[in-house]
């Protein structure tokens, strides 16, 4: 007889302080971390808990994905409107509002991407395949491993190798 498995919500409530601490340090702001962890709570509804092997790791991962989503969103906004900083709150005088799209930033982003795509082609065909499946087609490591008939740890190594190469060429 085993005790009933705690629900994801139970795990969340138990680990909430640790999550807030972790994301406070990642985001550099306890209140931003509170918001993020709160948002995480609402995401739990949609999760099939039966699929989750390590609930705590799952919560960290979900929170991290949310954080990356927010950064992604903020970047897009910044490209179109560079007037505001990364700060959560930005006060603008009613007369000093300027929404001119930052055309140079759009261009800069495109150029950087083109550069990265070229750098990606310098990698071995297998590393490229792994990286493309995981990053651009959104397959998980396990799915990528199954698709290519390799081990999960091999996928991890290819992803890491690709990122190292791209980082070196990004400068």
């Amino acid at each position: 007889m085993s005790a009933a498995k705690p629900s994801l919500t139970d795990t969340y409530l138990a680990k909430r302080p640790e999550l807030v601490r972790f994301f406070s340090s990642r985001l550099g702001s306890p209140s931003a971390a509170e918001d993020l962890v709160q948002e995480l709570y609402f995401k739990l509804d949609k999760v099939d808990a039966g699929e989750v092997r390590d609930p705590v790791a799952f919560l960290y991962r979900l929170g991290w994905n949310l954080m990356l989503d927010q950064m992604r969103h903020r970047r897009r906004a910044t490209v179109r409107d560079q007037a505001w900083s990364d700060a959560a709150v930005d006060t603008l005088g009613a007369t000093a509002l300027d929404s001119a799209p930052a055309a140079d930033k759009v261009l800069e982003g495109r150029q950087r991407l083109a550069q990265l795509m070229t750098a990606l082609e310098e990698l071995s065909p297998q590393t490229q395949r792994v990286f493309r499946l995981h990053k651009f087609e959104g397959l998980t490591h396990t799915e990528t491993a199954t698709r290519l008939g390799i081990s999960r740890s091999a996928v991890e190594k290819h992803v890491s190798a690709a990122l190292k190469h791209l980082l070196a060429r990004r400068k």
Binding site: D35, H73, A77, A88, V89, T91, L92, A94, L97, S99
Partner: peptide, 27 residues
């Protein structure tokens, strides 16, 4: 002239007679 664009996921608050402030995941 001066206009501000507010994007999906953002909010803007303007207290009575005050300055406009933009908030991200609104507060």
């Amino acid at each position: 002239g001066a206009a501000l664009r507010v994007h999906g996921g953002e909010a803007l608050v303007r207290p009575a007679g005050g300055a406009v402030s933009r908030i991200v995941a609104a507060d």
